[in-house]
């Protein structure tokens, strides 16, 4: 937001808003929430938005602290799978194989070597009041989850999958469909964690082909057949485990 909509004198938020330090989204939210409590406010929400790097990398410590304290905050991770504001650098939420400007594919290394950090379960492991994954490709699901988070008397975390046309090498008008396809292909999932239980909100019988999703994006264009097989197998293992452990009934 600071890059375009929050440069004096052009200030885009109609409500009270502030930009935090990069690692400090959660801790600043905690301070705001504590002050709201001290002031005796009743009708308010304290909501913060950070990117994948700001959440899973540099801001993870502060986020962990805020959840641990059970501060009444809504934390939204806007995950576009790389540091996009600085121009597409790898974060710990960049998926395996993806090309970024710091994981350039070449003869020796084919893009990102690590797999996407499992933030949702890391957050759930805090025994958080409410956590969910979402995608902008499933808008109603996202809206429902934000509504649910707003009713929680404690911390809530929503991990939103959101494509970046420039960073992923897609056309701007494909954004929504890619965000839907990632869920349909099983490379992202819609789930919730509440009352100590995981729930898969969407459990498709069949996935759309992983290859179709990957080939639409120039960041995956260099991948070999074996890479795609590896990604597909990792997906299947993850779903096998989620279905076995999460959706028992």
């Amino acid at each position: 937001m600071s890059a375009v909509g929050f440069i004096y004198p052009q200030l885009c938020f109609s409500n009270n808003a502030i930009i935090s330090t990069f690692p400090g989204t959660a801790s600043m939210l905690s301070g705001v929430a504590a002050a709201a409590k001290a002031k005796g406010y009743k009708d308010y929400h304290v909501l913060g938005i950070a990117g994948d790097g700001g959440t899973a990398d540099i801001g993870l410590q502060a986020l962990s602290g805020a959840i641990d304290r059970r501060d009444k905050i809504i934390y939204i991770c806007y995950d576009n799978e790389a540091y996009m504001n600085t121009g597409i650098q790898k974060s710990s939420l960049t998926p395996f194989g993806a090309k970024t400007t710091t994981t350039p594919p070449g003869k020796n290394i084919r893009g990102t070597l690590t797999v996407k950090k499992n933030m949702f379960e890391i957050i759930a492991a805090h025994n958080i009041d409410y956590a969910a994954t979402a995608s902008i490709g499933y808008v109603q699901d996202l809206i429902n989850k934000i509504q649910k988070a707003s009713l929680v008397d404690g911390p809530s975390y929503i991990h939103v999958f959101a494509p970046c046309p420039t960073g992923w090498g897609i056309k701007t008008d494909e954004t929504f469909e890619i965000a839907k396809e990632v869920v349909d292909s099983g490379l992202w999932y819609l789930a919730e964690y509440e009352n100590g239980e995981f729930t898969l909100n969407r459990n498709p019988r069949e996935f759309t082909p992983v290859e179709n999703y990957l080939k639409k994006q120039s960041r995956f264009r260099h991948l070999l057949e074996e890479d795609i097989i590896e990604i597909t197998e990792a997906r299947d293992r993850k779903w096998e485990r989620m279905r076995r452990q999460w959706n028992k009934n």
Partner: peptide, 14 residues
Amino acid sequence: YPVGPSFSAGYLTS
């Protein structure tokens, strides 16, 4: 000048 920087919320100039 705004002190802070803290300014009226939702102030669009372009």
